[in-house]
Amino acid sequence: MRWMPHLKRVLVGSAFAGAFFIGAPAAGAAELPNPVIDSAGFVEHVRGELSSVGVQTPQVDVQVTDAVDDALQKVVPQNTPALPQPEAPQVPEIPDVADSPVAGEVEEFATQAYDQAEALTNPNPIGLQELTQPEFKPVEVDPNYVWRNDLFSKVAAGKPFEDFVLHRAPGSFFDAPRVPEESNQAMTQGKSLYGPGTPIYINDQTMCTLTMAGTDAENRKVGVTAGHCAEVGDSVASADSWQVGPTGTVVSKNAALDYSVIEFGSDAEVTNSYNGVTARGVGGNVQPGDVVCKRGVATGTTCGMTLMKSENIQLNQVCATVGDSGAPVFRNGQIVGAISGGYRPGNMGSSCITPLQGALHVPTVVSDSNVVIADMNRRGGVGAGFKLA
């Protein structure tokens, strides 16, 4: 019975996924397009897992799964509250340094949204070998950077056979992006590196994700994130190199379009390629039916179909949750928008907290990057004439 432990994991994962499917959104508006729902694909995934341990199961009854999909697709949520954000750690002082800190379709993400390389990480986080319980917190490591090895966390992350998964935002069970090697290298020089998808701390209190980084018409180093994440004057630090301390300041925001402009200081470097994500441009034409992808600190890389578009926003089925606000949304290598919030019917509906949900979560509201860039240029000052690094 060597396959019994494996079978137990499969059944636990299947039951966990089923619970999220049952908890699908329960209200919506008939005029909105429906999210993509594929219960047959879920059942086939479970059958494949069981088959891998020698357990054969009957073929999927397509009539039954189609009936389930039709019923679920009648539900489309409304409203657009912004995502709440997790608290940031207090940035400690770093001793022994004078006057400065120490150092396509779904293939190719369906849209060839960006170059996806294996994320470079620290192969041996402090105390990793000693991790036996979820409560473990490494010494002098960002408290939001939490390694898990319990079965529930691994199943919820969709990776039951991994040794460890990483959580970086409260409430998210996704295996989050690690700190990339390029960030560690910049930190050894006393600098923080910023690019599309970089996790950031605002005012040592809020975690969000950077939409993009580059320079403006005056060659100032600037970045953009969600407007609801920050207020003018707030400090900005990279959550991947928080030891360096604040290296940017929020200089302007537009609450109506939900974006903030950050001016970076001399201890910051900007790039168009970060942690395997490369932005080839900003802006583009997104239409209902187009598949787009995002990279955020909480849920990593997720893709989904565009449901509708207005002048200023897009509505899609890309998974996003706490910490992903500001995350870049890609289409054909272009940053076409930034994560703004969830589209809810009176606080009803399921948040996206695990990859086992598939598309069964509230739709996501995205600020359109064409409109954001145009408004930055219209207002002038820091950020006007923005171009990617």
Rank of each mutant, 00 (worst) to 15 (best):
F330H: 09
A15R: 14
E108Q: 14
N275R: 00
L83Y: 04
T198C: 05
A119Q: 13
A15W: 13
P58G: 06
F42Y: 12
T121C: 10
G383E: 04
R280G: 10
N79I: 15
T299E: 06
F174K: 02
Y114M: 06
A213S: 09
V250D: 04
P328I: 03
M4T: 12
A237F: 04
L83M: 10
S260N: 03
F21V: 13
Q63F: 13
D66S: 06
A255N: 12
P123N: 08
Q73H: 09
F173H: 13
V222W: 03
E231W: 06
D142S: 08
S340P: 03
P134S: 08
E263F: 04
R220M: 06
C229G: 02
V75T: 12
V36W: 07
S153G: 06
L151A: 13
T321P: 01
H228W: 03
T65I: 04
V60P: 01
D150H: 11
G233M: 04
G333Y: 01
E44C: 08
N34H: 15
V236L: 05
V76Q: 09
L83F: 11
V236D: 02
G13K: 10
P196Q: 02
N149A: 13
N144E: 10
A71F: 09
N275Q: 05
G276Q: 00
Y201W: 14
A268E: 03
T271N: 02
G23Y: 12
P101V: 07
V250H: 02
V76S: 05
S192N: 05
E130P: 06
V106E: 15
P81L: 07
I37G: 04
S310C: 07
H361P: 02
V362P: 02
E269L: 10
V382C: 10
E135N: 13
S52Q: 11
N34M: 11
G337C: 00
G127N: 07
A157L: 07
V362D: 07
M376V: 06
G18R: 04
Q56H: 13
M305S: 14
A156H: 09
Q129A: 15
R2Q: 14
S340L: 07
V362N: 12
P84N: 08
P180R: 00
I373H: 01
K74G: 09
M305G: 14
G158A: 07
V336A: 03
D267V: 08
D115H: 09
A110S: 08
N275W: 00
R148I: 07
N377M: 07
T121M: 09
A374E: 08
F174C: 06
E311N: 12
K154A: 03
K387A: 12
E44K: 13
Q85G: 04
A27L: 13
S183D: 11
S367F: 03
R379F: 10
A239R: 01
V68E: 01
D175E: 09
N272C: 05
I262S: 01
T249R: 08
Q90M: 11
D258A: 03
T354Y: 05
P5H: 04
G265F: 03
T211S: 11
H361Y: 10
E311D: 14
